[in-house]
């Protein structure tokens, strides 16, 4: 019988106490236990970035982290972007720049972009590309996504 672990997480500003198995990935806890299904499962081996979330200010693949490892951490998922004031500037910029096609990669892209802008509000195009290099998109061809992050960064500056 698989060992259980009690874990406390702060997700999008809300505290949760969850019981997880020793094999449970953060991705599974977010999607199955907390019903935060905005975070997507793509490749499951850290190659596609669809499951990217922010753990203690860093973008990470939630398929590559055991929930038991991040006890006490602060996590941001795509659901944490929208507020009472409406869409987050990054979300608006993705819409305005047509950076979404099928949408499967979008939550991961948004999280990688958010982690970048939180750390570096005025990134160069190269820095944007580096921040997004772990996120695959099979539809748009990336240009619109990079444009969107640039636009959001400009908005951030204002």
């Amino acid at each position: 019988m698989m060992d259980k672990v009690n874990v406390e997480l702060t997700v999008n500003g809300e505290k949760y106490e969850v019981e997880v198995t020793a094999k449970e990935r953060l991705l599974d806890t977010l999607r199955k236990q907390l019903k935060l299904t905005g975070t997507k499962e793509g490749c499951s081996v850290g190659e596609c970035g669809a499951c990217t979330v922010i753990v203690d200010d860093k973008a990470v693949n939630s398929c590559m982290v055991l929930t038991a490892q991040v006890d006490g951490s602060k996590i941001i998922t795509v659901e944490g972007l929208e507020s009472k004031r409406g869409l987050h500037p990054l979300q608006k910029a993705f819409i305005d720049n047509q950076a979404v096609q099928c949408g499967f990669c979008t939550p991961g892209m948004l999280m990688s972009a958010l982690a970048l802008l939180n750390e570096n509000p005025d990134p160069s195009k190269e820095e944007i590309k580096t921040a997004l290099e772990g996120n695959l998109c099979r539809c748009t061809g990336y240009q619109q996504i990079i444009d969107a992050v640039e636009a959001a960064a400009a908005e951030w500056g204002n």
Partner: peptide
């Protein structure tokens, strides 16, 4: 190495 996400972990 890897990607930003991999390098962060």
């Amino acid at each position: 190495i890897g990607s930003t996400q991999i390098r962060n972990r």
